[in-house]
Design a protein around this nucleic acid. Structure first.
Length: 255
DNA sequence: ATGCCTCAGCTCCTGAGA
């Protein structure tokens, strides 16, 4: 069974690329972030023709998330219960007895800003809900655009980015707190190419120079961890014309 | 270098992304 996460940066613009990618990579589940469209614009028919059931939670201009699956997901939850939020950032469903959480973590802009404070509150809210969710669903995966790097290995220029957004100790504290709850970074279960990133800035030939960061993650619960067979970043769609700035991350599990 | 690119929208500029 394969599952993937991809920040598409506007599904309106990226739909043809997503459909192409699904044809070449017929994963069982794909969670997407940054749809940047209202619910009435979601191309459910196109995905149905491609063989996917869809659940979506859209928003105008920013945010918006979706969960595609070969077999329909059940027990859908939108956003974080118990955490009041104006933004469409999380969609959760059960597929093949696995609780799949697709999340678009807040960007945070810069330390010291209101948006950074919101990011910290959101991360706390996520954790308090996740505790109960993990207890109810031992087989759980938290996948999406985390907008946080684990450490220097996830950053093309660790010195230049030190204490900058995505690389601060405060953000990493919250990321490590998820690990402390029993979640594992599936990417690091395997040997990976050096300088493996999932996002590259559009500016200044970021992708061509591999100036990027690994900020899209798939964390798995203890019950899933022994089943994981691979976790790969697929840079292929980043080479398209008008690509998303993010690449998909794909996990394979025995199931 | 408060730049560089890309997207959406109160669209021919601006805010936000990361």
């Amino acid at each position: 069974m394969k599952l993937a996460t991809w920040n598409v940066n506007s599904l309106s613009v990226r739909l043809p690329q997503v459909l192409d990618w699904l044809q070449a990579n017929p994963v069982n589940v794909l969670v997407m972030q940054e749809l940047k469209m209202t619910d009435d614009k979601f191309p459910a028919d196109a995905f149905a023709q491609a063989g996917y059931a869809a659940q979506w939670f859209g928003q105008k201009t920013y945010n918006g998330v979706a969960l595609l699956s070969r077999t329909p997901a059940t027990d859908i939850v939108k956003n974080i219960p118990g955490f009041d939020d104006d933004m469409a950032r999380v969609i959760t469903g059960t597929v093949n007895e696995i609780r799949v959480i697709g999340a678009y973590f807040p960007n945070g802009q810069a330390p010291g800003t209101e948006k950074f404070e919101y990011k910290m509150e959101w991360l706390k809210g996520l954790r308090s809900w996740l505790k109960a969710e993990m207890a109810a669903h031992p087989k759980l995966m938290l996948m999406g655009d985390y907008n946080i790097t684990f450490d220097d290995a996830d950053v093309w220029d660790p010195e230049g980015m030190r204490d900058q957004i995505h690389c601060t100790d405060e953000e990493r504290y919250h990321l490590n707190a998820l690990v402390a709850m029993g979640l594992t970074d599936s990417h690091r279960l395997f040997a990976q190419p050096p300088k493996s990133y999932s996002w590259w800035d559009y500016r200044d030939y970021g992708f061509r120079r591999n100036r990027g960061m690994r900020i899209d993650h798939i964390l798995v619960s203890a019950a899933i961890k022994p089943l994981v067979q691979s976790c790969l970043i697929d840079k292929t769609p980043r080479k398209n014309e008008r690509p998303s700035d993010h690449a998909p991350v794909v996990i394979e599990i025995a199931a």
